[in-house]
Structure formats: structure tokens, C-alpha cells
């Protein structure tokens, strides 16, 4: 039982990280039709920024944690917004080129991070509450899992409120469904593009700082390795669907944890799940039917 609970909550913690990346990916794809390969780099840079803050303020303190999360979110947001304004916008309406530019950006930035912080993982020894465990039904759960889950829930709640209660949220929801018609109502949809990139950057930034706690290290490849699973989550959930991304994040991560523990093949099971979903329901769990 305690193993079950441990795997479940660890899976939820990992699912929280997946969601923080996949939510932005899904919104960006849904609104703009761009598969953002640079999303992992947003996360990695934020993780390094959080790491640098933590190193100076102390990663084991609450102040250090919150400050690094804040800096991570800001760094992710700025990086993402600049990416949209400088690289994506000039290629308006040329989707494949937009994807290619994000591929180039991810290759270039990962190399740059390797140049700055070295190619190997830098392990972080957090102590204090984040490294301690809390007993849930006899299972010792590392506390950073709870922080990840709480952060993902906050981001999810914030996104839902934003999408449903604000004018820009309305524009984004409409744009995901029919971008051309939004412009035909006299709305400059490009502002919404920058906005979804920025929001995606915030979520990925928070995800990056939390991922460094979850895995206990930062590395130039941190974002890239998570990005692949976030892609899988996005496809399984349905491109453009926030709820789909949330459900698929949890599903994929929990399945991965259990399959890893009992069979040792978590990553392969996830790929298999993707293949099955694509063959049975190509638009994903909650995606709109392919046009």
C-alpha cells in the first residue's frame, strides 16, 4: 500500500512538471499552429536562473525557493516573449519555418548553456523541508513533490480563470478554434500570440525550477528530456486543449512511474500509449477532430 501511494504521489509530482510544460506547448500549438521545440530551453534557462538565485540566497530556505521560482518564472516569460517577437513573428503564417526556427533556437541555446554551465549535470544539495519527507498512509513522500503539485494546480487554476474571465482569454479560446475568424472580427490576434508564448514561458519557468528540485540537479539537457514527454502529453491530451493536457500529464506520469517500478519500462510504455492513442483517436483525448 505504501509503495502504491508513493508511486502515485511521485507520479502526480512528475505529472505536475509535465503539465507546466505541456500547458504552454498546447496553448501555443492550439492558437498558432506552432510546435515549439524551444520550449525546453525556456525551462532549462529558468532552471539555471533559479539555481543561480538559490546558490546565493540558499536553496533550502523558503525565501530561496520562492525567489528562485519567481526569477525562474520571469526569466521564462522574458525568454519566451522575445522568442515570439524576434523569431516567430517575422515568419507569420509560415508554420513550418516557425517550427524550424524553434528547432534552431533549441540547438543553439542548449549549446550555449553547455558553454556557460558545462555539459554535465550540476547536483544541488537542498536540505531542510524540501528534502524531508511527509508520511501519507505510511508512504514517505519527498516534500518537493507537494510543492510541484501545488504549483501546477495554481498554474492550472490561474490559466482557467484567465481563459474564462478575461477578454484576452476569450480571444485565445476563440483563436484556438478559428484564428482567421478572430481577425475577421477586427481583433489583432498577434498580441494574443505574444501573450500565449509569455504565459507558456512563465509555466515552463516555474516547471524548470521545480524540475531541478525534483531531479536534484540542473543540466543543459534538463528541458530537452522533459520536452519529449511533454510533446507526448500534448498529443495524447489533444493539441490546444488545456484540460486534455492536465489529464494526459497525470495519466502519462503515473503510468510511467508504475511501469518503471514494476516492469522497468516506463518510458517505453508511454511511447506505446502514444502509438495506441494516435491510432485509435488521432485527435487526442480532448482535441477537436482533425480539420
Amino acid at each position: 500500500m505504501s509503495t502504491f501511494v508513493l508511486l502515485l504521489i511521485t507520479g502526480l509530482g512528475l505529472g505536475a512538471l509535465y503539465f507546466l510544460i505541456a500547458s504552454g506547448l498546447s496553448l501555443i500549438y492550439g492558437l498558432m499552429g506552432v510546435l515549439n521545440f524551444a520550449h525546453g530551453s525556456f525551462l532549462t534557462l529558468a532552471a539555471f536562473a533559479g539555481f543561480e538565485v538559490g546558490r546565493r540566497v540558499g536553496i533550502s530556505t523558503w525565501t530561496g525557493l520562492f525567489l528562485s521560482l519567481l526569477v525562474g518564472a520571469v526569466v521564462g516569460a522574458v525568454f519566451a516573449a522575445l522568442t515570439e517577437l524576434l523569431l516567430i513573428r517575422p515568419l507569420y503564417k509560415r508554420h513550418i519555418e516557425q517550427v524550424l526556427v524553434t528547432v534552431g533556437l533549441s540547438l543553439a541555446t542548449v549549446a550555449l548553456f553547455e558553454g556557460i554551465w558545462g555539459p554535465d549535470p550540476i547536483f544541488m544539495q537542498a536540505s531542510g523541508w524540501m528534502r524531508q519527507t511527509t508520511d501519507i498512509l505510511g508512504a514517505p513522500i519527498p516534500n518537493d513533490r507537494f510543492v510541484s503539485i501545488a504549483a501546477a494546480l495554481l498554474v492550472l487554476g490561474g490559466l482557467v480563470l484567465f481563459l474564462n474571465k478575461t477578454r484576452y482569454g476569450l480571444i485565445i479560446r476563440a483563436g484556438v478554434e478559428n484564428r482567421a475568424m478572430v481577425t475577421a472580427l477586427g481583433i489583432d490576434v498577434r498580441k494574443a500570440f505574444t501573450l500565449v508564448f509569455t504565459i507558456g514561458g512563465v509555466a515552463a519557468g516555474i516547471g524548470g525550477v521545480l524540475a531541478s528540485h525534483y531531479f536534484g540537479y540542473v543540466s543543459p539537457l534538463l528541458g530537452g528530456s522533459l520536452l519529449i514527454f511533454a510533446f507526448i502529453v500534448t498529443v495524447i491530451g489533444g493539441m490546444g486543449s488545456l484540460a486534455g493536457a492536465a489529464i494526459a500529464s497525470v495519466l502519462v506520469a503515473v503510468l510511467q512511474q508504475f511501469a518503471n517500478f514494476y516492469l522497468g519500462v516506463g518510458d517505453l510504455i508511454v511511447v506505446l500509449l502514444l502509438a495506441v492513442v494516435l491510432l485509435v483517436r488521432p485527435q487526442g483525448l480532448l482535441g477537436k477532430a482533425a480539420a
Binding site: 523569431l87 524550424l100 526556427v101 528547432v103 534552431g104 533556437l105 533549441s106 540547438l107 543553439a108 541555446t109 542548449v110 549549446a111 550555449l112 553547455e114 558553454g115
Partner: peptide, 12 residues
Amino acid sequence: SEPMFLLGTLFI
């Protein structure tokens, strides 16, 4: 000193 940085930038 990072070839991939230069190649990625050239590519963009």
C-alpha cells in the same frame, strides 16, 4: 567555442 551554437544561429 560551441559549434552547435554557431550552427543553430546560422540555421535560424
